[in-house]
Design a binder for these strands. Structure first.
Lengths: 223, 223
DNA sequence: TAGGACGAAATTGTTAGACAAGAATGCACG
DNA sequence: CGTGCATTCTTGTCTAACAATTTCGTCCTA
């Protein structure tokens, strides 16, 4: 790994750019679970002042992508089975509410349909990382389509950790893309049919499957 | 208002103490809606350095108790009708999930029962602020009893804004405490009876009433 | 050799001062 | 009376430094 990272142009604030860059490296698994991130290390790597690095770390801690306690250095969290279960319980709560609300209107969000297509392309080309990103986009688009700022904010918290765990365990994952595609399609169909209960059921089933797939890749707790 | 505020002893970190102090002043309505909070003002008021004040403001922004955009000063948000509706939609989503889960176990959380009593005492003594705090505690206890760290974190986001709006509009509120008490009691009874659907229904009804009570205190949008 | 205590190094928390850049305000001029 | 410019306010970022706390390695002792 290079000793210096560079920030893409774009975000107005330097802290924003730093936050976004580190966030991507964490959710992609580039920075592995358990790794410690000190303020000075990041500051020197990115050529920014320590307070700037500190601010980025604090924001990442706020969204659950880092953990730290007072005077201790931030680490990328290691999600064990109990935490993954809690994560998916919370996720199902939010996303069920989202698809129910969408089904009540009967309109399938265009962004979600587009993401669904992107997943298939990525799967065909064996681009695992793109496939994960597209899957995240699909679920995020569903929630965003509800139009509730607060629901989206809560979902952002959750989906960040989901992204983290998918990225961290990617080496072990062997998921049949067509299975995911059909599960997604079932949800969209129920939304189009205007059937909230069916949409919620299909979504819950899909997420339970996703949870099981993720749990099966977890390293066994050694005796 | 005094030109200097003092921090209570307790929280380990200075930033934590500052965050907590400002948070309380906002949710109690002591700092009114629309008020601007500049970094230097807080820094001088509390006798801390500007970066410390900045950190506290950023954390408050992160939980929705302040709003700010780049280079602009933070302000206490003014929640209009649409935002209150969104707030309660999100709140109902989270709390329904919580009471359903609790009813599945059939155990009434002790903390919630205690908070229920505290509400009655506060109402009897006409201590409005305590009444609000106890009500918040009741709902927070319900969610906390589920034992899901992430559900509690999401709820914290929501309940903060709920607290804010209750505190800001308190002058206009005239709520019958016994009504609230009986609505709460219905939820607890359904949990004790182990009936998830009934618990969710009673809770939704209670929160819809609370939403309506809050909306009725909103100043009319002038033509 | 194993264990614990002590001390040094690393890391974070907080402060001060400074400068640049963007936003808001008011005044002057057309 | 309205518009544009300049001043002022406020935030974003940096450098430097010290205090407080944690961590780690070493050394001494049993």
């Amino acid at each position: 790994m290079s000793s210096e990272a560079h920030l893409e142009l774009g975000p107005s604030s330097l802290t924003d750019a730093l936050y976004e860059s580190i966030r991507k490296r964490i959710v992609n698994g580039e920075i592995p679970q358990g790794e410690k991130l000190t303020e000075v290390r990041l500051a020197t790597e990115y050529n920014v002042a320590r307070p700037t690095a500190k601010a980025a770390l604090e924001r990442l801690t706020g969204v659950g992508l880092l953990r730290r306690t007072a005077h201790k250095t931030a680490v990328v969290p290691v999600l064990d089975e109990a935490e993954i279960r809690d994560l998916f319980f919370s996720r199902i709560t939010i996303e069920k509410a989202a698809v129910s609300a969408l089904a009540a209107t009967g309109e399938v969000p265009a962004d979600a349909a587009r993401a669904q297509v992107a997943i298939e392309y990525a799967a065909r080309d064996r681009l695992f990382e793109n496939q994960v990103d597209a899957d995240i986009s699909f679920h995020t688009a569903l929630v965003a389509a509800v139009g509730s700022r607060r629901l989206s904010r809560m979902h952002e918290l959750i989906i960040g950790e989901v992204h983290l765990s998918m990225g961290q365990y990617k080496a072990h994952r062997k998921v049949d893309p067509s299975t995911v595609a059909s599960e997604h399609a079932a949800v969209l169909e129920a939304i189009a049919a205007g059937d909230p209960a069916a949409a919620a059921d299909h979504l819950a089933h899909h997420l339970e499957q996703a949870e099981a797939r993720l749990l099966s890749t977890l390293p066994q707790t050694r005796s």
